[in-house]
Nucleic acid binder design. Structure first.
Lengths: 247, 247
DNA sequence: TCCTGTTTTTGATCTGTGTCAAGGCGAACT
DNA sequence: AGTTCGCCTTGACACAGATCAAAAACAGGA
């Protein structure tokens, strides 16, 4: 349930798979192999990084920015199934084609690894395989928490849940942590939020206004959010305790 | 996206982790170790196998019957986050406590392994770790498909999707496959269905009646379902192509 | 600065699903 | 056979959120 950060995150800038990923215990020759198969790629806001069904020659780790994983039905209904923040991993070893469409929500930098050699690296390096399993289990937990949000929460609770998730991830990255008030840039359009939450963008807008009116959040411009009291937000989200939702 | 069955499933009755699990390439001393730490356990319909938050000393594989994974909010709202059919795996290595409540939907037999030694086995046996990763990735895909169902589909489409998933899993087990008509026992109450689909049991009942009236399904008693034409069901489910939803 | 297109807000109305309530059906037990 | 209990179905009505429509806020370029 708790996000498992590589313990020596801060000391790990040389490792090309950043943060939560496999770097923590990389040894020099593993690092060298990773160096060989990696390259950084940038995408601008709104750009589609990969379409569902595309051939997938890379796996990647988000370095900066926000990307989304979405599914679409033929009639255009869309559902976001994953929100990729810095340190998240994209792509599935052993699979030729992408299952989901990946879109850059903001400007994004990804650290890409050629898939074939990456798979070999996994096969020959047990601790990387373990790290990958751990990350996948975290993602599975996140997806399951999200099923509760989608299936059983009201519009207001959904919005509060989304804000809480992002606030938590941001706080985690900034290490600012428990200073009470948290402020962050929401790098999603209202439409992207509605795709995540299974709502329409009008409903998202209305509920944002309502949360603002009730003082749960403060809006500075359209996208910059201040949460004066995190516990009140969590209450609105209907979360038991403050355990919180993993992303 | 496609379920990955162990290739020599049929020849593997001695392996205590059945079907999809790790058995395919188990060698004799690995099998011996598994023998030592396993024991079979039976549960009767309706019984709670494990509560969220309980200490978890076992991981397990479903041998027969159907079990469910659910989350509950303090006010009682409930969401099923996983449906466990024979060959599915439960439990998370490296975690002390259960995240979800596990309930037997029908009479269930599980093959349980003591967690600590199982973790050691994973650590020392790369191909088991790989199999586990593959299974976890399949589950993640299933969870994400389910997010689309929960977030964007209508009640009728939700029901059709659930029936399609179960029909597909049953067909897979029976190996009866593409004979057009599929019939199976739905081992879930209307309430369990509603928990899976994020609906009320009344709505589930109404939509089942509607699908029956329209000839998409035939009901023999309350729980035995006949699907005369699988493609029509998939159409109702709103699935693109017939790719279908993994569970 | 104005113009243009995108994103967001707000309003009015409609509808699918939830809620509340009653009754039916079958299985197990007396 | 009758009673009880759990599960399922059906109906009437209410409401959260969708849909349709318009205007306001904002960003970027000429």
């Amino acid at each position: 349930m708790t996000r498992t950060l590589a313990p020596d995150l801060k000391d790990c800038n040389d490792c090309p798979i950043r943060h939560r990923a496999v770097c923590a215990r990389c040894e020099t020759d593993e690092l060298r192999k990773l160096e060989e198969i990696k390259n950084y790629r940038s995408f601008s806001a709104g750009q589609t990084i990969m379409w569902a069904g595309d051939r997938m020659d890379f796996v990647a780790s988000v370095v900066s920015g926000v990307a989304t994983l979405t599914q679409t039905m033929e009639d255009g209904r869309r559902q976001m199934v994953g929100l990729l923040l810095p340190s998240d991993f994209v792509g599935r070893p052993q699979r030729e084609t992408a299952s989901y469409t990946v879109t850059a929500a903001s400007d994004v930098v990804m650290c890409c690894f050629r898939r074939k050699p990456f798979e070999q690296l996994i096969a020959s390096t047990p601790h990387i395989a373990h790290r990958l399993l751990e990350m996948t289990l975290d993602e599975l937990d996140a997806a399951r928490e999200w099923m509760l949000v989608l299936g059983r929460k009201t519009a207001r609770e959904k919005i509060a849940s989304l804000l809480a998730i992002i606030a938590r991830r941001i706080a985690e990255l900034d290490e600012a942590a428990d200073t009470g008030a948290i402020s962050f840039d929401l790098m999603l359009t209202r439409e992207a939020m509605s795709d995540y939450l299974g709502l329409t963008l009008e409903t998202v807008s209305r509920q944002m206004s309502a949360l603002k009116k009730d003082g749960i959040i403060v809006l500075d411009g359209k996208r910059h959010i201040i949460v004066p009291d995190m516990s009140r937000l969590l209450e609105e989200a209907g979360d038991d305790s403050d355990g919180g939702l993993p992303v």
